[in-house]
């Protein structure tokens, strides 16, 4: 096989440098055999992407992707998501269930820059999940401080950790749970902060197929409720319970 013809696979796989590529393209003008073969190879390669089996994109990907893309040109904070649905619920619940494996891939989270609070929280979740790597690869520069961290336990399956993080003047509760029983229908796991006899809603979450779930909750709206002595997680029939309707799954003194 002539020398040039030998480069055909290198050419279609993009392994030639600019000079080599030009030389091969010159060769193509003269060698009809190679030309046909390149066309043949390229036509089949053009079809190959369609061989990918359909995979459902993760929930909320559109908001995360477009949110951070649009942010690229934004100068004013707070206008990031004007053209896409707001990815966050009012009480700043961010379900981390689909992203728990995101240890090294941080870029999709930059969408969350839109919400400074959540960004900082996800950074802390990252830190909490990867304590052994602490300091080597911080997600974001942050002066957040973990004020309190407790481990929740109970009679049933599952464990959880809860941290209260202080970010400037705001406090955020971050709960991360695993090995929980699967939910059904509209059921959710609801986090409660309890002051004496009075429970306060402090975020809800659903679990992924591995029984893992997490939630970040801003404590701003509870700041006038005094000190909490207990944190508990219950299984509720839906996300609207104002007081616990289900049994306590996990709890801890604060």
């Amino acid at each position: 096989m002539p020398e040039h013809c030998d480069r055909l696979i290198d050419y279609i796989s993009g392994e030639l440098n600019e000079e080599e590529k030009r030389a091969f393209e010159d060769h193509l003008k003269e060698c009809s055999e190679c030309r046909e073969e390149v066309e043949e190879m390229e036509s089949i390669m053009k079809d190959l992407p369609f061989a990918a089996e359909p995979v459902d994109p993760p929930e909320g990907m559109k908001n995360r992707v477009l949110g951070s893309v649009f942010e690229e040109e934004q100068t004013e904070p707070g206008t990031v998501s004007e053209d896409v649905e707001q990815p966050y619920e009012d009480d700043k619940i961010a379900s981390l269930t689909t992203h728990k494996q995101g240890k090294r891939v941080r870029k999709p989270w930059t969408a969350l820059l839109a919400a400074g609070l959540l960004l900082s929280v996800s950074g802390n979740v990252y830190t909490l999940l990867n304590e052994e790597n602490e300091g080597t690869d911080p997600v974001v520069e942050s002066i957040d401080e973990v004020m309190k961290k407790v481990t929740l336990s109970g009679q049933q399956n599952g464990t959880a950790s809860a941290s209260i993080i202080k970010q400037q003047e705001d406090r955020t509760l971050v709960v991360e749970a695993e090995q929980l029983n699967q939910l059904q229908g509209e059921e959710v796991y609801q986090v409660w902060l309890i002051n004496g006899e009075t429970p306060h809603r402090a975020g809800s979450f659903v679990t992924n197929q591995n029984g893992e779930g997490a939630v970040a909750f801003s404590l701003e709206k509870l700041k006038d409720q005094g000190d909490f002595d207990t944190i508990a997680i219950t299984k509720e029939p839906d996300a609207t319970s104002e007081t616990p309707r289900g049994d306590i799954v996990l709890s801890s003194k604060l």
Binding site: A52, S68, V69, Q101, G102, V105, K107, P108
Partner: peptide, 21 residues
């Protein structure tokens, strides 16, 4: 389509989302 294709290449959900972005 692009997500499925990225997934075929990366075999990993987070990486595929990174590709999309």
């Amino acid at each position: 389509l692009l997500y499925s294709f990225a997934y075929k290449t990366c075999g990993h959900r987070e990486m595929s989302e990174e590709v999309m972005q």
